[in-house]
Design a protein around this nucleic acid. Sequence first.
DNA 1: ACGGTGACTAACC
DNA 2: CGGTTAGCCACCG
Length: 109
Amino acid sequence: MPDDADFGAAVAEVVRLIPAGHVMTYGDVAAALGSRASRAVGKVMAHEGSDLPWWRVVRSGGLPPVHHEARAHEHYRAEGTPLVQGKTTWRIDMRRARWSPDTDADDPF
DNA sequence: ACGGTGACTAACC
DNA sequence: CGGTTAGCCACCG
């Protein structure tokens, strides 16, 4: 039961549940834990993200953590994560890539 | 107990 | 679209 796990352990568990090609926002991960500590989620990722698919956790709007965009971009391209390419910027297509541990629907459209 | 901090978010200008 | 302000919550010394 995740209730006994520490916040960090719970975050790691949720992140590991995210399937390739999909992402969750920090707020969504925190919400999945019953909390709103989006910041705390980021702190856990910074500390233990080394062993986690941190690139599957993005900021609101579909942008990866600051200074980690390039590294994340390679993962997205490799996993087939739907991206929206702009003239000089890019972001994740949240409408299709957003995922929830309770909703594994692949194509809600 | 307390204040500072952060891989955040939303609202406002 | 970008800079500012404030709210948010968990962790650390």
